[in-house]
Design a protein around this nucleic acid. Structure first.
Lengths: 220, 220
DNA sequence: GCTATTGTCAACACATATGTTGAAGAGTGG
DNA sequence: CCACTCTTCAACATATGTGTTGACAATAGC
């Protein structure tokens, strides 16, 4: 509270915490700038391979300044990734809940997912390439939540496939969950080779190609 | 050279280097033991997330003892991974060179790859989860070689698909290389969820399921 | 039992990363 | 031009990891 003339206490830490509660526009801009730089580095070097010093350098500032905007590397990563991932889940669950035929659902989901990857590039790819099985023990709460999101995502796809098998619009050529992982793999693996800014094929056509291959195998 | 009575020189470094040229059976056993422990850790924590100290602890020895057997963490990783990866490439290229029809080739390759994953578990998965785009700048020679292996692998699959399109056993539903990446993604992504020791479905049936889905979409 | 070789230990040097903070600079409104 | 706030700088404390080496233990051969 009253820390008026304590010579040992400049109150900077406090001010920093306050700043983080800021709604200031310039402040938010700077945050966004840092996030973008971080995302690009996380993507090219991975989370562990990226140091805050390096992020600062790319932004053109000092390491301490990063800490003015984010309390830790974790927070940076989480902010960068969480929103867009959760958003994708919502889309998937909405598609599952729709009353389109199963093949239609699957196609919509695949194409939409690819388009989301491209639109939010590289945020989702950063998330994909960080294996949730490898996170530090300290981040368990966040990791747990993300794993839950993942499971729900997997479940949405699995459900769609199972429903399709039940109403005979899909062949029963394998366990729904094995097929779901296969489909996700096809899409997820794009993070290893696809860059929407440089690729000669666009996200939509990739999604449609894959949907095509899968569906013409799954449909009767 | 003649370091006979230099009190500052016990020659241990030399002996270590020599030991590494050893063909001794016990020595090789110990090496293998370390490799196995390391593989398991790399798999669960990733390369960067695994420290040599931790490997030593699992083996039940001291960190320095690891250095007696391997000159660095890199060497450990490389030894662990290189052989089996190259072997896989050879298999793929042999399949491409065979005179089976394209769909047959693709099926054989997919099933074989899955079986190789299971047989050499977790070595190939360790390799898969380490994104070659993220390796340290110091390991460039090795990384370069591995990328070359990867490219050849991709090329083998792409070739098979393109040939199939040419002789009309495959629909031309997309660029061969996009399809190749899709196929590889389906298989590669298994490293995120498949453990041959605990899974209720076996590698062969996964491979066959995926081959089935893909082929019935690609074949006319 | 003694000696030589093989393997292990404990400590060091070095490098890199995170997170903190006192003080100083830059810019803005009065 | 002064005061105030936001932002940055330079330095520190701390932690973790790699790679090295002198000394020591264990084991096998003589």
């Amino acid at each position: 509270m009253s820390n008026g003339d304590n010579p040992n206490e400049s109150g900077i830490g406090q001010r920093r915490v306050m700043a983080r509660g800021n709604k200031n526009a310039i402040y938010e801009d700077r945050r966004a700038e840092i996030i973008t730089a971080a995302a690009s580095l996380f993507r090219s070097k991975g989370y562990r391979g990226t140091s805050i010093a390096h992020i600062a350098k790319v932004v053109g500032t000092d390491r301490a300044s990063i800490y003015y905007y984010f309390s830790s590397k974790e927070e940076l990563f989480d902010v960068l990734v969480t929103d867009v991932v959760k958003n994708n889940l919502k889309t998937a669950e909405r598609i599952r809940a729709s009353d389109a035929p199963a093949p239609e659902k699957l196609r919509t989901l695949l194409v939409g997912l690819m388009e989301s990857y491209a639109e939010h590039y590289p945020f989702l790819f950063v998330y994909l390439q960080e294996n949730m099985a490898h996170v530090d023990p300290q981040r368990q709460t966040w990791a747990k939540e993300m794993r839950r999101v993942n499971r729900r995502y997997e479940k949405a796809i699995t459900d769609i496939i199972r429903d399709g098998q039940k109403d005979a619009s899909f062949r029963t050529t394998g366990e729904p969950w094995v097929l779901a992982y296969g489909v996700m793999g096809m899409i997820s693996w794009t993070h290893r080779w696809f860059n929407p800014h440089t690729s000669e094929v666009n996200a939509t056509s990739i999604g449609e190609t894959y949907a095509d291959v899968i569906l013409s195998g799954l449909t009767t």
